[in-house]
Design a protein around this nucleic acid. Structure first.
Lengths: 231, 231
DNA sequence: CTCCTACGTTGATATTTGTCAATCAAAATA
DNA sequence: TATTTTGATTGACAAATATCAACGTAGGAG
């Protein structure tokens, strides 16, 4: 972990958050000066469930995971976070604590934004307030769907779903280097690492995907969607 | 289902929503005139997943359930809603659709509030906006916990958890008449009806609860909490 | 270079959980 | 009253899934 005081100006940052474009000129100036860019190595924790929520975070490069630490050290991977995405944390308006952890999957850079400032920005800029509300709601909808996936689908459906998610939402390609580990894939689908591996093997043998180490290619997207939907 | 045009004034309603107390005098007047009280019989649907989101709903008497309709007609019961609780629906700021259904568990009365009006109230009254945000966030936190409960605990833990929830949050008594059916209890814990019944029997035989039909009494709360926490 | 550790993989086995079928009781209907 | 119908219950069984143990492999530390 290293702090970069001389980080880029938001204005020129290709991974800046949507918030920058929904606030006043003056607020942009303030935000630009206040942000703190920090880089994390793969595997490091960016913020930790239970800790005080002092900042929100914008990922500027790399890949991070939002995960919930459950029973017996078991983690539930809620979603992955790509550059330009803002991670707030629902504790912001509740108890000033983090209710999940954020960890670096790959080497990752993030900008920290003070929570007090962020809150002010939200209440000072109506377009931002609308957008924050909409995104909050959107994530809640995603959550319901995740809940159904994990409780009503069995393993092949969940893994198929996860592969589609990785391909379309995260790596944005039918063929991708899967930078999350098998354990993390297991945490994403709420199953054991061994079962995850076995299902991957099955999908491979069915000819729906090819897998060489962590290089994954979706060969038959239609077939994969069938499995995902059937459950 | 029957419409009551001459329903009580919000001002005198003991089950009015928190929103009434966070808006201006004039807005209270407007809200009072605009609301439409409707009563539903047990089992009836108040609004349906997928339908256009035209109103938010405040439960004024009875008991309702928020549930997600998943695969193969299987429902996931997200939470129960008591009088004075407001049910918005996350689609409000997204796609104007309901992303879950609301159903009457007992005979239930609700007030419908036009979504356009509600939105205006939220953006016109800052205290309300804060509160709505806070509640939205709170539900999201609950969601994470539910996700862990359902994916990481096994059946006895889930049922114990559900009974504690019913006792402390819903019926507010150690001994209560469980007005939700075994099927609904199964939907709440994401398991089959038969398994739910078996676990209830186990808990009864362990002396943690007594169950006579739908009268449930928690005898050993500590023991129940242990089972719930252990998973 | 070698050891060590973390990750991936596989097989055998045990546990958890769901499904199916039958029965019973209570409530609704005719 | 007789008749459905619905919800609750139980047992037997099958399917899904986790756990345990063993082994390989690749990368990092010394």
């Amino acid at each position: 972990m290293a702090i970069h005081t001389n980080s880029e100006r938001c204005e020129n940052c290709r991974s800046r958050s949507f918030i920058f474009d929904l606030i006043s000129e003056q607020d942009r100036e303030i935000l630009d000066k206040a942000k703190q860019e920090v880089s994390f190595n793969a595997g490091e924790i960016i913020f930790k469930q239970g800790a005080m929520l002092t900042h929100v975070v914008c990922v500027t490069s790399g890949l991070a995971k939002i995960y919930f630490e459950g029973l017996d050290k078991k983690n539930l991977l809620l979603r992955l976070v790509k550059p330009s995405e803002l991670v707030g944390g629902p504790g912001m308006f509740v108890d000033q604590r983090h209710h999940y952890s954020l960890g670096a999957v790959e080497d990752t850079r993030v900008c920290f934004i003070d929570i007090g400032l962020y809150r002010e920005l939200v209440f000072r800029n109506k377009p931002l307030a609308h957008e924050v509300m909409a995104r909050e709601s959107y994530h809640r909808i995603e959550m319901y769907e995740k809940l159904v996936n994990l409780t009503q689908k069995q393993m092949p459906g969940r893994v198929a779903e996860a592969l589609i998610y990785l391909s379309t939402q995260i790596y944005e390609s039918a063929k991708f280097q899967c930078t999350i580990s098998r354990q993390e894939l297991a945490d994403l689908t709420a199953m054991s690492k061994e079962s995850t591996i076995r299902i991957l093997k099955d999908l491979k043998e069915s000819g729906l995907v090819t897998i060489e180490g962590n290089i994954v290619e979706i060969v038959d997207m239609k077939g994969l969607e069938d499995i995902s939907q059937r459950g």
